[in-house]
Design a protein around this nucleic acid. Structure first.
Lengths: 239, 239
DNA sequence: GCAGACTGAGTACACTGTTCGCAATGAGTT
DNA sequence: AACTCATTGCGAACAGTGTACTCAGTCTGC
């Protein structure tokens, strides 16, 4: 049932004999995702999740070896259902669409920023997305290693951005304050930095920059950075 | 003593009256960093840290309001001591040096990848690094908002890369296996993906790519991606 | 029909961050 | 030198956590 196979992805969901399970991986995963999105990933405990599903906490271990596996399931699930992007068109169009889609999905499911990193968790949906993105830059005359660099670089940018964009609102949520209250707590310290006179450029950022007042600042900054990254990746293409 | 001020950075370390504290923030932070580097960030509990320092667990709360503050201290500490890069030379040289230095530091202190994200934790050392990097692209004819895009984009790439590079070895460590054992557990599943025939490009990555056999693969891939990102940022400069 | 593989879950263990209360301390004031 | 009392260290306790071990009861393939 469980530790027979090493990886959850090729472990049969249910045994051939014995009573039918009352839950499914999909049900459990879906409930966990709802819980994580509404209450934060740290609210996803085996006990609260079990309550949500109307079963005992220990029962969940019939479906999953460790909590980590549950989180792997969660990540791969949203990589399928919730990630949409345009796979047709020239490479730049596809990569741009993928980047925006992955960003948007990550903002809907903040826990993906951390737990979706790397090739660690190559569930079927994640593998398929990988395949699609590689497909967009296939046939452009690049070696497979160069294609890998392109994908990894773009992916790093997206994930890094998402992490940055989320860090503020996450730490606000964790401290129980709303974003404005949290910023007001921070203000006196930032002012003391400015008044010290040792940070002239940081001061310009705080005082002069227009972007902090832009409600869509983060998205605009993401889009601007994305185009620069795509510019850079374009230099890898032959002729 | 504690919750008088909102942010730890402008909260006085010790009071003017009463007995002298037997520890200092610096001592506590240093011990926590050693613990996190050797045993992983999740091994840093208030109790084990207190044992390491030869005090009671509750005593630590005389120096720090919440555990999060301790982690903020840790991040800012390594942003000072352990982060080295060349601040002289043209912008590209400085940014390249910064990127490599930050990557190297993050690999020495894996927990920074997650807990150092965003402008959330702007300790004095972090603020100073920010100032230095902004200094490298000051005077090139860019608006402050454009400078911000450059820094944020580069930062996102570095953090995203670090997260990807660490994810594998982190999940290996968490599962108690060494990296090779962990990869052998993964192998049968990857083979089943390949044999399914649905992932031709992924298959080429696994079978044809030279880079997986390169011991310095990750560093080379980082450097290659970094140059492309710098290429992209260069397009922002006037004329 | 029935062996026995399988499911559900109560209980327990070893942890976690954090709070409270209280004794001991020692610096500032008188 | 005596006295105050803010401050320190910390044992104990609280409300959680992930996970292992059991064991009774269930249902399926033969």
């Amino acid at each position: 049932m469980s530790s027979n196979h090493g990886v959850i992805w090729d472990r049969p969901e249910r045994a051939t004999r014995g009573p039918a399970p009352s839950l499914s991986r999909e049900e459990i995963t879906a409930a966990a995702i709802v819980l994580a999105d509404t209450q934060g990933i740290e609210a996803v405990s085996m006990r609260t999740l079990a309550v949500q599903l109307g079963v005992g906490a220990a029962s969940l271990y019939r479906y999953v070896d460790r909590k980590d596996e549950l989180i792997d399931l969660m990540v791969d699930a949203v990589m399928g259902d919730d990630l949409q992007f345009e796979v047709r068109g020239d490479w730049r169009r596809v990569l741009r669409s993928f980047a925006r889609g992955l960003r948007a999905m990550t903002l809907r499911h903040p826990w993906v920023a951390i737990h979706g990193a790397g090739r660690r968790n190559l569930g079927p949906n994640t593998a398929w997305r990988y395949e699609q993105v590689l497909g967009a830059i296939d046939g452009l005359g690049l070696e497979i290693d160069e294609m890998l660099v392109m994908v990894e670089t773009l992916d790093a940018f997206i994930r890094g951005r998402a992490l940055d964009e989320l860090s503020e609102q996450e730490s606000a949520r964790r401290s129980g304050l709303n974003q404005e209250e949290w910023m007001q707590v921070q203000t006196p310290y930032v002012e003391s930095l400015i008044n010290s006179g040792h940070y002239p450029l940081l001061t310009r950022v705080v005082l002069d920059a227009r972007s902090p007042h832009d409600p869509d600042r983060l998205e605009h900054s993401f889009d601007a950075g994305l185009e620069r990254v795509l510019d850079g990746l374009a230099t890898m293409l032959p002729d």
